[in-house]
Design a binder for these strands. Structure first.
Length: 545
RNA sequence: GCGCUCGUAGCUCAGCUGGAUAGAGCGUCUGACUACGAAUCAGAAGGCCGCAGGUUCGAGUCCUGCCGAGCGCGCCA
């Protein structure tokens, strides 16, 4: 049990003893100002009405009845807070416990219902963009965070390799391919073709591998093969970029398989039978307004092809049938209209409303030279994720992506990111880690051997650092519960600051055996938490820089 | 027009689901390396927390209404 929990329990007992009342949800927090103690509780303020007395008086009663061996001093302050100061022995003993838990500190073993997290799912029709990069960084870190907080997480990427856009993409590549041989390809709509440079690259690879083979075939027969080649090419490209970004998945799901297995038809059939799908104007509609959507949605177009709705509902039903109890999709904010529709389809199929949830990630605005960069896939415009990674590096990119809430729009100033890379906060955090590593090198010690923190005095800088270390599990827990990653960078920067402050004032490698041992323990503990936190972000923790 | 999300220092962003004097980084200014890494530390300046009401002991945080921004409201995904 954490110190915070033990404090809350002791406060509860004090309230019972003083007033004969059992209170739930007692709030214990770290005050902003260290002069207000190590921890504080607002029970007296929050429950003054229950006791029909003024808060300070209630706080006094609680403080008098309070008794816990790990607390050195209590105090009633301000409008009615009870402040607590911990005994040094209790703090050192917490450090010891942290060291013994090692990498497991702040993490819980996975248990409970499995949850499937889907992210990126960029269409295999081009390279990943900086927008996908943000979703990838957020999704991957969220997955790690949820796992660390004891969730059974399965991470999946959904490849849209079945719809109309794949046909168009195939035609785009086919047109470039034919062009290599000075020929024309019969395209359905020249306006909607993909125009990026990479289509030419794919066409060249296609021609290298197959020569003129597809020009001698009936275009309608050749196209599926060309589409498949182009799609596979993009998937490989995307997977390379993901690997480079340290973004991992447990599985890749292909939309095509839903066509082949008949799951889409099954879904449509069930919706018809349930009376949730109806024919109108030659199309098949989902009566999604019955489940809170703004309007009904088309499932099957009048030309007989599916909208994205049909396979997507089938896909999420598939997730459910694989045993997942929760499905969370991470999508770009431009998909804001998506969740109610898919949920409507699922609820119509008898799936609980809370099965499916979405986190929308705001798009990334690129700024260069003080002006917004137009998002266009033309070369030289610096829009692919690979180009960004080349410029700022993997660590800085991942850190920068998740430093701000995924719910706020992000301005990615390219000049700033490149030019100030040395001042990037990620280096500040990494530097603290490297600094500690350097101490252990100097001492010729392996920090994994440090497991003890002997009792003794604790300096203010040490106290603040320990308290910060003890906050880590709560930060992980809360961030995971709110599906927010950005509290972690904030925490790590504070922790790094606390360490640097400690380091500036106190020398670690001193002659006094016990003092030295305590400070080494503090260093080892800080290093563990820094590494653990950086790992959750997919950022490296260097031994030297 | 309706719906969702957002509005905090010059810039980029935090703010522990209602607590004490709203915090970091960058930028600006002033100091600190003859002991473990100065990619660091100490300090200064910089704020009607979009505006106006309300809820209560207490509001950046919750409610309502405005103002402003982004996105959505396709037989596109």
């Amino acid at each position: 049990m954490s110190l915070e929990e033990r404090l809350a329990r002791a406060v509860r007992e004090a309230v019972r003893e003083a007033y004969g009342v059992e209170l739930d949800g007692i709030h214990v927090e770290r005050p902003n100002d260290p002069r207000h103690g190590d921890f504080a509780t607002n029970v007296a303020l929050a429950n003054a009405r229950v006791f029909r007395r003024n808060p300070r008086e209630v706080a006094g009663g609680v403080a008098d009845a309070f008794d816990a061996p790990f607390v050195e001093k209590t105090e009633v302050a301000g409008p009615g807070f009870v402040n607590f100061w911990l005994r040094p022995a209790a703090l050192w003993s917490e450090v010891e416990s942290l060291l013994q838990q090692g990498e497991g500190y702040g993490r819980e073993e996975p248990s409970g219902d499995p949850i499937i997290l889907e992210y990126v799912s960029a269409n295999p029709t081009g390279p990943m963009t900086v927008g996908h990069g943000r979703q990838a960084a957020y999704g991957d870190s969220l997955a790690r965070l949820l796992a660390a907080s004891g969730k059974n997480v399965f991470r999946e990427y959904y490849f849209n390799d079945g719809g109309n856009q794949i046909r168009l993409f195939g035609e785009s590549v086919a047109a470039r391919y034919a062009g290599i041989y000075g020929r024309e390809w019969p395209v359905s709509d020249p306006e909607s073709l993909y125009k990026g440079e990479y289509t030419g690259e794919i066409a060249r690879d296609l021609s290298e591998e197959y020569g003129e083979r597809f020009l001698q075939m009936d275009p309608e027969e050749a196209l599926p093969e060309i589409s498949a080649f182009a799609t596979r090419w993009c998937m490989d490209d995307i997977k390379k970029t993901l690997a480079r970004s340290r973004v991992a998945f447990d599985g890749y799901f292909n939309e095509k398989s839903l066509y082949e297995s008949g799951e889409i038809e099954d879904v449509l059939q069930k919706l018809r039978e349930g009376g949730y799908a109806y024919e109108s104007e030659g199309a098949l509609w989902l009566a999604s307004t019955r489940f809170g959507d703004d309007r009904d949605r088309v499932l099957v177009k009048s030309d007989g092809t599916y909208t994205y709705m049909a396979p997507d509902v089938a896909y999420h039903l598939n997730k459910r049938s694989r045993g997942f109890k929760t499905a969370v999709d991470i999508l770009g904010a431009d998909h804001a209209g998506y969740p109610p529709r898919i949920r409507a389809g699922l609820v119509a199929l008898g799936i609980p409303e809370d099965f499916f949830d979405v986190e929308l990630v705001r798009l990334v605005k690129l700024v260069r030279g003080g002006e917004q960069v137009k998002v266009s896939k033309r070369a030289g415009n610096f829009v692919t994720l690979d180009e960004l990674l080349d410029e700022v590096g993997e660590d800085a990119a991942r850190y920068f992506y998740v430093r701000s809430s995924h719910r706020t729009e992000m301005n990615f100033d390219l000049d700033l990111a490149v030019q100030q890379s040395d001042e990037n906060p990620v280096y500040y955090v990494q530097y603290a880690h490297a600094r500690i590593a350097s101490i252990f090198r100097r001492a010729e010690l392996d920090e994994s051997g440090i497991k003890e923190a002997p009792d003794g005095d604790i300096a203010p800088e040490e106290r603040i650092l320990v308290l910060e270390l003890l906050d880590f599990p709560r930060v992980v827990r809360n961030a995971a519960a709110r599906r927010e990653v950005h509290p972690l960078p904030t925490y790590l920067e504070t922790l790094a600051t606390r360490f640097h402050q400690f380091y500036t004032v106190h020398r670690v490698l001193v002659d006094d055996e016990k003092v030295r041992q305590r400070r080494l323990a503090l260093c080892a503990a800080t290093k563990t938490v820094l590494r653990s936190g950086l790992d959750l972000l997919g950022v490296s923790a260097p031994e030297r820089m």
